[in-house]
Write a protein that binds this DNA or RNA. Sequence first.
DNA 1: CGGAATGTTGAACCGTTTCAAACGGAGTGG
DNA 2: CCACTCCGTTTGAAACGGTTCAACATTCCG
Lengths: 260, 260
Amino acid sequence: MWCGVALHLQGCILKNSDISSLVRMIDRFAIHAQISSGDREALLELPYTLRSFEAGSYLMRDGDAPHQCGLIISGLAYRHKVSGEGQRQIVAIQLPGEVFDLQQLYVAAADHNVQTLTRCEIAIISHRALRKIAAERPAVAHAFFATMIAELSMTREWMLNIGRRDARTRLAHFLCEFAARLDRQGCPPGQAYELPMTQEQLGDALGLTAVHINRTLRGLVQDGLVEHDKRGVTIPDWGLLVREADFNSRYLHIGAFDNA
Amino acid sequence: MWCGVALHLQGCILKNSDISSLVRMIDRFAIHAQISSGDREALLELPYTLRSFEAGSYLMRDGDAPHQCGLIISGLAYRHKVSGEGQRQIVAIQLPGEVFDLQQLYVAAADHNVQTLTRCEIAIISHRALRKIAAERPAVAHAFFATMIAELSMTREWMLNIGRRDARTRLAHFLCEFAARLDRQGCPPGQAYELPMTQEQLGDALGLTAVHINRTLRGLVQDGLVEHDKRGVTIPDWGLLVREADFNSRYLHIGAFDNA
DNA sequence: CGGAATGTTGAACCGTTTCAAACGGAGTGG
DNA sequence: CCACTCCGTTTGAAACGGTTCAACATTCCG
């Protein structure tokens, strides 16, 4: 299922680049959540295992008893559920650096699947270790809680998107959200990014068919709202697309947590 | 906006019924989350304010800076967002006793609305007090976290429902979920319950129009899958509806949290 | 009792799906 | 290098599920 060597942060060989990206991510998390440097150190010293996964690997399966979480160092993953009829709904995209996958931390059986979208480097950490640090360090628990709030908010907006917007607006909104979130993660801002999803996956994310995604996307391209070659997306006029998409980034709570 | 007198639990007049239902709810929460009796006492001694709200009152507005949470003692509430076109999507129904409204606990500006569906008795508590108890008592923080996980799971299932199931299945699924959740809250089990929602609200919850809800509901009734008079729903054959609804209660994580 | 909100029904319409066929690019093996 | 396959994209035509609009019935509530 996964290839690559398991490397422990503690007393184990690790490429410099891996260490530094882990540090960078936890630092971003720390700033975001305003945790102390002691908390930051403790987070860094947890027993991570670094693994590499091929595109399409399952990180978690619906029904499994989950015992570990992942922090995406590089690559993209997605969460999905499938209905009794075999219809798939993608319920979230997970970007690199979006802290820990905490969604099943206290749950006996997973209620959805997580699968990699591209090749991924993931720092794996046991639930036990995360529960322990959350119990010992209130600020870390607080930060974990805040990330769950952000996830929930994003999921609500997706629901509005799927339930109440037409295909064109829906797709435009998705493209805006992707750009805004990449932006926040410190990727080169806004105008152009790689979107490593097939049209079928886009359809599954937006509650549409691949065919209709195709037509809708071509519509957006034809009207000059986005450019699009292979898996690359570029947005020539951000304001224009935002208006078309009915997009307002407030629900992402970027840098807007109340830590008092 | 709200009528009725604000009553403080601490050293203040309070009807017996109010106290006892609050105690009952916190006890259920305590059992659910396996928190200690000390934690339970601390939860009970928080400075709640009891208020009564008319049906249709806003408990929170999109964009507000939220400073307090509510615990629904009796009545129903719902969360919703509205799109730029004025289309509304209901993203969750809140049942009595479903612990605290923690979804905006660490957020600078609310990202959605909460409105009462019926007349509600709500125990209001400040964010400050909740943050304090969460910081001081890891088990309580843990329990809060678990309720967020459950919310998130429910929201994901709604997304699957709206994105990938047809109107009939969607409505049937909604009715099943409602029954299962009421059941968990200790209401008389399964077969019959009151559903105090208009068809327009049902439509907004399911991403459909009121007209289509009407036709779909009549279809279910005609086929003997549900009975329905005024706002009452009864389910003659639970297994039958469950099959029609593609419903599997696992995502509700009823009594299935891993507290190790 | 009267007026407003909610439920019910029909007919026309439209956005999206379905099915089917063709096209293009990447990777593989001969 | 070509032939071949696989996967994803593109396009068209027909069908369908759900919407829209409009009219009317019913219930709720002051």
